[in-house]
């Protein structure tokens, strides 16, 4: 299986890359989603702009109150670095398999915006901010505005997601991610999954963010759950009651891996698990 013919450029700098981006071009990072799509000829860019040789994009940097994960940081590193908040690190560790995690990038998984991907949910729950750069400057896009629709992010055609910023976990904060994978257990894309971040003070939940993957038209926040959690003591009963609001504002879509009813059920199960685990991770 070969992709259609394309022109290939491997710029050595971001400026060169911006110069190579055009109407029929596509950025390639790890290629773990792009190459299969091109091989199946579901997608045939005129030019592939391989950002893999641009220096300075492959590190996770500490900026005091937040970290930034560069565009070439692979899933394996996001998973194991120890610097990444648990929800996103766990989502990275459950992305694909060993070989996929050695090539695929966290930023690529976010830019790809797959409805059933793991890291978008982790990024949403962690309050990530996407840093998009183009020849005309830099934009910061909060995760909550980044995932627009199935396989559609807020990135413009001429932009590169150069890094993602994640607030560091502070006192009283915890996060977690869990999913049911398509191959059973936690393997492969999510049939349904959830990420959660909670902040507790004086015995009660002060703030929360909960995100769903696999169930709707895009990775998205379940704001109803967060709202229901705030002010409670985070007891099992409170978490289970809050999880009942998991599907507010979500259009549940059936797919090959589950009916609408099944996915709706799973959404609540995984929201419950993720929130309980996030509380346990404080």
């Amino acid at each position: 299986m070969y992709p259609r013919q394309f022109d290939y450029v491997a710029p050595g700098s971001l400026d060169e890359a911006f110069g190579a981006l055009g109407d029929t071009s596509k950025v390639m990072a790890g290629g773990m989603s792009l190459i299969p799509l091109m091989k199946m000829r579901l997608f045939s860019p005129g030019t592939v702009v391989d950002i893999g040789r641009i220096g300075g994009l492959d590190t996770i940097d500490d900026h005091g109150d937040h970290i930034s994960i560069g565009a070439l940081v692979r899933h394996a590193e996001t998973a194991s670095s120890g610097a990444v908040p648990t929800a996103l690190a766990t989502a990275a560790s459950l992305t694909g398999d060993v070989q996929v995690r050695n090539r695929g990038t966290t930023c690529g998984a976010l830019a790809h915006a797959d409805v059933a991907a793991d890291q978008p949910a982790g990024a949403l729950a962690c309050g990530a901010v996407m840093v998009a750069q183009s020849a005309s400057g830099t934009r910061e896009i909060p995760a909550s505005e980044f995932f627009v629709d199935a396989l559609t992010s807020a990135l413009h055609h001429d932009e590169i997601l150069t890094s993602v910023k994640i607030p560091k976990a502070g006192d009283g904060e915890g996060s977690a991610y869990d999913k049911l994978g398509r191959r059973g257990g936690r393997s492969d894309y999510a049939v349904a999954g959830a990420a959660a971040w909670v902040k507790k003070s004086n015995g009660s939940i002060e703030a929360a963010r909960v995100a769903l993957t696999g169930v709707g038209t895009k990775p998205q926040l379940a704001d109803g759950v967060a709202e229901a959690l705030v002010g409670t003591d985070g007891s099992d009963g409170a978490v289970e009651a809050a999880a009942d609001r998991a599907l507010e504002g979500v259009t549940v879509l059936e797919d090959l891996y589950g009916s609408e009813e099944y996915k709706s059920h799973l959404a609540k199960v995984y929201v419950t698990r993720a929130v309980k685990q996030a509380l346990a991770n404080i």
Partner: peptide, 21 residues
């Protein structure tokens, strides 16, 4: 994974990587 080889010491799937990469 039948196509697994090591690139710079790490296992990867060579059917999902371009030779130019």
């Amino acid at each position: 994974g039948a196509c697994t080889v090591h690139v710079d010491g790490k296992p990867i799937k060579s059917c999902t990587m371009l030779a130019v990469q």
